[in-house]
Design a protein around this nucleic acid. Structure first.
Length: 492
RNA sequence: CGGGGUGUAGCUCAGCCCGGUCAGAGCGCUGCGUUUGGGACGCAGAAGUCGGAGGUUCGAAUCCUCUCUCCCCGACCA
């Protein structure tokens, strides 16, 4: 009989606590000795690598090239775009000394790279023939946030940031939406995280942008997570950094620029979208491991037989590809652990398929496997498993997406009445607020007073979804005439 | 940055109120053996400047001051 083992906190009991325990239990990341920073452990970093490899392909397929710009941004650059300074300067880390001397000009550690890239683009762009300029960079950035949470908001985080320059506002807008669509499809098709695409309200725009768009996912505590943003920067940065070109009409014009990014926050999104009370659940397409095999044997003789039985299977699996990348298979041969603890560990780590093989299976030519997304253990012949493994992974990928989508639908309501709206976002038990709320789709006129009412409820306008039919309505908060609905929600 | 918590072995914590074998437990870890289809067992062992710095005291994990971390709630935000 097993000893009593403390399970992890349930999502329903304490969601933030669950989130931390899950990260720790799956060995994804830990706090670093530096405030607000994290160490991304190998198992967690592998997810990031898989995100990088596949998203990078998509970014390149849409015509972008990778480059790299400096970590340090001269203070004067940050100061050039008015809104940008106001937005970012307060949360920047600044280098004042280097090489044992005080610097003549402070160097900001990039919170984002529009300014330094703008300065470089000035030199790269002279003619309409130099446009469009389509660049992406994978980098780390630093934002000195007041309150940090592993993956969701850390002082330093990893991301990709695309920076493009165009001839016309139409082209820039097209680019902005194209990359938003890339993010949508990446989130949904790879991370199995359903998202809503839409435009941010004016007050929530990127500092220095004309339009900001985002993808918004619903986490299991029904709060929204902004999982990626795409900005149409108009000519704001072009003017600040004199990114000018000679047009087809022989006139000097400012370029139209965009920027867009997703970060390691996506990993937080994956955890909170799919995780359950046993641990994380990895979407197969970004899972560090697809299949883990636990051999079970009573003695050395059996061990040898089981391993021999497994060899051809493992060899076959390792040659396979799942999507664009190799199938990732591991045989858990650790001697010190019995099978039980191994099962629990791989469950915490969310490996999509766990295979058990013992003498029983060797004799019958079978294996036993369990899907991380649920259901009973199943027995299958060794050969059929190899034939079915890819479709099993596809099924898991699809089923966790469907589950997340169903969850979002269940927790999304359309409302026209402010009282219902308030009730929706008010916990029933104030002393111990339970998980409540969700997404509200309601008319929104975009006026400033709306913000105040929302603030009292701790609700934010997530975005005005794209592709909706316009209709006459009244803003749910102010009653002002409105043509479009917005998604309202509590958010990370 | 405000309010509230917290910090003792890798983890979970006891000890603190009433200073004096208080450096402790369980899990984990190491070695040997037995075990192995859902968190095994025996024996032996290693491991902590009690978050940090000052102070009070004959003596501080324990009392005082300052400081830092992390967590929760706010304000700020990918």
């Amino acid at each position: 009989m097993g000893r009593k083992f403390k399970g992890m906190t349930k999502r329903s009991e304490d969601y933030p606590q669950w989130y931390q325990e899950v990260i720790k239990g799956a060995e994804l990341a830990q706090h670093a000795p530096v405030k607000g920073c994290m160490v991304i452990r190998p198992y967690g970093y592998a997810i990031w690598e898989n995100i990088q490899r596949q998203l990078d392909e998509m970014i390149k397929e849409t015509g972008h090239e990778n480059a790299y710009f400096p970590l340090f941004v001269p203070e004067s650059f940050i100061n050039k775009e008015k809104d940008h300074v106001e937005g970012f300067a307060p949360e920047c880390a600044v280098v004042t000394h280097a090489g044992g001397h005080k610097l003549e000009e402070n160097l900001y550690i990039r919170p984002t790279s529009e300014t330094i890239i703008g300065d470089v683009y000035r030199g790269w762009i002279q003619s309409y023939r130099d446009l469009p300029l389509l660049i992406n960079q994978w980098a780390n950035v630093v934002r000195w946030e007041k309150r940090t949470r592993l993956f969701l908001r850390t002082s330093e985080f990893l991301w990709q940031e695309g920076h493009t320059a165009h001839e016309t506002p139409e082209e820039a807008q097209e680019e902005t939406l194209k990359m938003l669509e890339v993010y949508r499809s990446f989130a949904e098709d790879y991370l199995a995280m359903p998202v809503i695409t839409g435009e941010k309200p004016a007050y929530d725009r990127f500092a220095g942008a004309d339009h900001t768009y985002s993808i918004e996912g619903m986490m299991q505590d029904r709060k929204a997570l902004q999982a990626g943003t795409s900005h149409n920067l108009g000519q704001n940065f072009a003017k600040a950094f004199e990114i000018k070109y000679l047009s087809r009409e022989q006139k000097e014009e400012f370029a139209w620029t965009t920027s867009w990014g997703v970060s390691t926050r996506l990993i937080g999104g994956v955890i909170m979208t799919h995780g359950d009370d046993k641990g994380v659940v990895m979407p197969p397409k970004v899972a560090p491991l697809h299949v883990v095999i636990v051999p079970i044997a009573r003695n050395d003789e059996d061990k040898a037989k089981v391993n021999e039985y497994l060899e051809p299977l493992v060899a076959k699996l390792k040659k396979m590809r799942y999507g664009e990348l190799k199938l990732r298979v591991k045989v858990d041969n650790r001697e010190a652990l019995r099978p039980g603890p191994k099962f629990f560990e791989w469950e915490r780590k969310g490996v999509p398929l766990r295979v058990e093989v013992g003498m029983r299976d060797v004799a019958a030519g079978n294996l036993v496997f369990a899907r991380r997304d649920g259901g009973e253990k199943q027995t299958m012949s060794r050969d059929s498993f190899a034939e079915n493994v890819l479709s099993l992974l596809d099924e898991i990928q699809q089923s966790i997406y469907d589950k997340a989508l169903a969850f979002r639908k269940e927790n999304t309501v359309e409302l026209d009445d402010l009282n219902e709206f308030k009730a929706f976002f008010t916990p029933k038990n104030k002393k111990e607020p339970e998980i409540h709320g969700g997404f509200v789709l309601a008319h929104y006129a975009g006026c400033d007073e709306t913000e105040k009412t929302l603030k009292e409820l701790k609700v934010t306008v997530r975005c005005v979804p794209l592709g909706q039919d316009e209709e006459d309505g009244k803003c749910i908060v102010t009653g002002q005439p409105s043509r479009k609905k917005a998604i309202f929600s509590k958010a990370y």
